[in-house]
Design a protein around this nucleic acid. Structure first.
Lengths: 205, 205
DNA sequence: CCTACCGATCGGTAGG
DNA sequence: CCTACCGATCGGTAGG
């Protein structure tokens, strides 16, 4: 996996730790080592403080994971709504929805990795709530495909399989994308949205 | 995620634990909870024995993960070689390679989940060795795509992006597939291999 | 296969 | 923000 820019906090920051800084440090560590593979003491070490001091800025390790995943799902949802708002052509709706989703995987790699790998590490009641939100987002993409099939724009047999395939191929971007690599996030997002249209059998556009 | 058939060991098996049974129990638990989320004591409990007794059948927790991943990569490699052996047409090579890979994700869900999620939890020297093997497998698929582009059979711009997308969309099958679901593993594998051909811009077949 | 037990580390609290 | 410390659990060993 490409490097994720682990936090190295400047000395002066040691006296200005905030709850946002704790979340950011946790995000980097969870993305690299996984939730269960990360110790709270490592988060503290990243920030240059002792473990007990962390608890002035957070309630628990599990709350960190919940907040990270919740915020990420908020962002994905907002992205989707904005991307398809006012667009009625199914081809264009799918292109835009896939493009923005793929783009997010490249620009928010840590979040993508954590959501994908550790959502199941949540505990109730957050587990049910957030899993349901992920399902709803998947169903929203599927609905776009169903619309396209009804209108004759898409020819794919199973919208369910197609939407799974499209989502997961996008998620994988977070595993290899590098901001300093050969392709920009936008270029990758464009290519992946073209893949999506091909998967559903849209006329080549 | 669909249920993974957690081991419930019959009472009479309690006296016939083997190293294979330990691996199988660990495989189920790692797939559900992740490597770091699984305690060795849970493996023992699944088998109906005490934790120290496990060590008559294994050397360490990390060796369990190494063996699981190593064997899975062996299987993937053998599958690929067999699928493309003697086939020269790039379209058919890609179809077969994708089909057998997709099929494996459906029929070996636990293995797929563990390799995908926990390869990075390995420690050296296994980490480097097994990551290199995964990379080689990815390159083998990419080479099929490159051949198809050279011969004019495929039109995709980037074989790198296409092979990533194809691999990852297949891996996701392990997350939702159910043997008692609406589609058989073979049907899913056929649909996904069609998706792969569409991604690379092969003539619809 | 077991009981008994090891040092290390876990997430988190008390109290200042 | 810290030191001191908590009970629980971790992977693993000794010895039978």
């Amino acid at each position: 996996m490409a490097p994720l820019g682990t936090q190295t906090v400047p000395a002066r920051a040691r006296h200005t730790v905030t709850s946002e800084a704790v979340l950011d440090a946790a995000l980097t560590l969870f993305a690299v080592r996984g939730y269960h593979g990360t110790a709270v003491s490592q988060v503290a070490e990243t920030l240059g403080i002792r473990t007990p001091s962390l608890y002035n800025h957070m309630r628990s390790k599990r709350e960190l994971l919940e907040t990270i995943i919740e915020r990420t799902l908020d962002g994905v949802e907002a992205d989707f709504e904005e991307a398809v708002r006012g667009v009625s052509d199914p081809v264009e709706r799918l292109r835009r929805a896939t493009r923005i989703y793929a783009l997010r995987q490249a620009t928010h790699r840590r979040e993508a990795l954590v959501v994908n790998r550790d959502t199941r590490s949540l505990e109730e009641p957050a587990l049910s709530t957030l899993q349901a939100r992920r399902r709803n987002q998947e169903h929203a993409l599927r609905a776009v495909i169903v619309d396209g099939i009804r209108s004759g724009a898409f020819t794919v047999e199973s919208p369910e399989l197609a939407s799974f395939a499209i989502r997961e191929m996008c998620v994988s971007i977070a595993r290899w994308f590098r901001a300093d690599g050969a392709r920009s996030a936008e270029q990758v997002a464009d290519e992946y949205s073209a893949f999506a249209l091909q998967i559903v059998g849209a006329s080549r556009g």
